[in-house]
């Protein structure tokens, strides 16, 4: 692993008509760290994430992955650069099993000289690889062969996270990973995020749940009105300072 940060966003600016959604934003995420991006609604968190994952293009500024500038022109480019995003809606296929979801869009198949869509799937290899992946992330599913639609919210979230981490991805972005979950399920997902970190991923988490941020994040950057207004190591004693940064009382 190189010394360069996993992800560096420099001078990111994005305008939607008259609205300046991002205003010269600088954010750096290191390998093996969980970075929380905090902010009230409309602060620019989602725009930042969408620019990093190739959904939107920056008007100005640049994005570097491990020290190399990447032009994020589409989600496919971002994925190819090792950036995986777990969207809030998860983008899972309820009708397919966990393995099929893990490999969706990049199925292992042969022979290589045929167009990708016409190849013969290597199903047992994919099953083995997904079992191994889920085991390493300590995700237990009731039945790996049952469709994801039959799974609980936490299990679904776990499958989505496992998919994002399945392909040697270096940067995993999670948008509100615990917003739709109950207590036990949130716990499982938080543990999963910590496991991604211990595997050397740079993990970026957007969350409104302060307790979760306190527990898992190594650093937190706070955004307000399109700018980064502060950075803290989240601890219980500076919780109130983080909150006031978010709502904009004092800075």
């Amino acid at each position: 692993m190189s010394d360069a940060p996993a992800l560096a966003v420099r001078g990111a600016t994005k305008r939607f008509g008259a609205v300046l959604a991002l205003d010269e934003v600088d954010v750096v995420a290191q390998h093996g760290e969980v970075l929380a991006v905090l902010g009230d609604n409309g602060a620019g968190k989602s725009t930042l994430i969408n620019c990093i994952s190739g959904v939107h293009r920056l008007d100005a500024g640049l994005i570097e992955v491990e020290g190399e500038e990447v032009s994020m022109s589409s989600p496919a480019v971002a994925r190819a650069a090792g950036i995986e995003t777990v969207y809030q809606d998860l983008a899972l296929f309820d009708n397919l099993d966990a393995t099929a979801n893990l490999f969706a869009g990049r199925e292992q198949a042969v022979p290589a000289w045929l167009p990708r869509g016409m190849r013969w799937m290597r199903r047992s290899e994919m099953n083995r690889a997904s079992a191994e992946r889920l085991r390493r992330l300590q995700i237990s599913l009731p039945d790996r062969a049952s469709s994801v639609g039959m799974m609980s919210g936490g299990q679904r979230q776990a499958v989505a996270v496992a998919r994002s981490a399945a392909f040697a991805s270096r940067i995993v972005i999670l948008d509100e990973p615990t917003a739709a979950l109950g207590l036990r399920e949130s716990r499982q997902v938080l543990d999963l995020i910590l496991r991604l970190r211990s595997e050397g991923c740079a993990v970026i988490v957007i969350s409104h749940a302060m307790d979760h941020v306190m527990e898992i994040a190594d650093r937190a950057v706070v955004m307000r009105r399109g700018r980064v207004v502060g950075e803290e190591v989240p601890r219980p004693e500076n919780r109130s300072r983080l909150v006031s940064l978010i709502v904009g009382g004092e800075s």
Partner: peptide, 28 residues
């Protein structure tokens, strides 16, 4: 059940927008 394209047919039916975001050629 065995060819990638067939799997993509199920994927497009299960979540059309998700399929697009994961790079499956939905239109084709």
């Amino acid at each position: 059940t065995r060819i990638v394209w067939g799997r993509w047919i199920y994927a497009v039916g299960g979540n059309p927008d998700g399929a697009r975001r994961l790079g499956i050629p939905r239109s084709a």
